[in-house]
Design a protein around this nucleic acid. Sequence first.
DNA 1: TCTGGGGTCCTAGGACCC
DNA 2: TCTGGGGTCCTAGGACCC
Length: 435
Amino acid sequence: MEPPERRCLALVDVNNCYVSCERLMRPDLERTPMVILSNNDGVCVSRSAEVKALGSVPMGTPWHKMKNLARQHGILAMSSNYELYGDMSRRFHGLLATWVPPHCQEIYSIDESFLDFGGQRIDRTATGHAIKRQVQQWLGLPVCVGFGGSTKTLAKFANHVAKKRPEWQGVCDLTALSAEERLALLDQFEAKDVWGIGRRLSEQLKEHGIHTAGDLARCDPKRARERWGVVMERTINELNGVSCIAWEDEPPTKQQIISSRSFGGPVYTVDELADPVRMHVGRAAEKLRAQGSVAGRLGVFITTNAFRPQDPQYSPIRTIRLAVPTDDTATLTVWAVQILKSIFRPYRFVKAGVMLDDLRPKSVMQGSLFDALPSEQDMKREKLMGVMDKANGKWGRGSLGIGSAGVKGERDWSMQRGMLSPRYTTRWNELREIS
DNA sequence: TCTGGGGTCCTAGGACCC
DNA sequence: TCTGGGGTCCTAGGACCC
């Protein structure tokens, strides 16, 4: 085995991604305090700098709880427009790909990529600014760049510094610092600012006198493992430049596929629940086929509203093992409806979902001895699935489905998106007009 | 009245087998 | 009366991330 090449990892991400995407199409909103809401206009998932500056609207704030504040400060709320964000995301990651050799980009999320500049002789700070400038000029999106050196956790931290400290002007190169300087910088941030340290862990760390990211970096990883487990050990090592989190330039095939969504309004009957369950089976199976897998297990869940403690609560989930793993929407739909009927009781439901588990590559699927060869019916279904996936890709999700799964139109369970912007970049008839 | 959706990894405990 | 121990598989739940 050859020793791994030395890495120099950077993390590039879009500032206030969804808000920035909306402003692209509405430059007049550049200084308007605004938030983007989740599905069903439920909670706040992206905030503009003006809203963050208020300090009273944390990520995930329910929209109905901030309406007064919004009126008071003139905060504009918009429904999320994932077609727009997905399209801008593709352009963003595509542009970043041109900065590094093949296999040196890892797309980490809709608005973040790790780039590996190891082996390239570059002026990092200058390169960071050049990337920032180019993404701004070509796509109109503001980004920050953090160079962390050998580990992803340090790249994440560098990016965090670039975002939070204006004096770095959006680009932070930790590799230019000595070990002491780096620790001093880590000491200026809380442990919970470190990637992988959430609310619970940071509380526990505080009880042990570990307050800053620097405190955490100075912990003994072995002892931390005894107390908190292997994840904490890795985080501490990564903060000290010891790489423990693998590089994954190819998206790994998913081990689980979930499709679920809250309803626009409450649903009471099994017939009403069957519609969204069929739709979720369709969506999940489509994702399954897209990655060339079959599922060995299928689960269905329905939930009542946990935010109404005065209501009787009932949120069952049932999973079954499929005798023959499959990617066939019709087969999965039949089973899913069976499961739904078996768990249904009369309650006030607000959400339903479907889960595909125990995924494996279709190519190596082992049928039972006697159906090793696909039957004529199997072949017909394959063809039908292909036609369905193409149609849904072309005309939009839900154009074609099983039973009434895909019927568009307003139902109690359909999503609320009262403040949706047009699909400027992916629909000709919704293009932005310039007058 | 109104509180997102989709993932990952790890751990603990029970069932079962030899 | 004594009542093993290792391995595997499965499930549930906790914690984190965007």
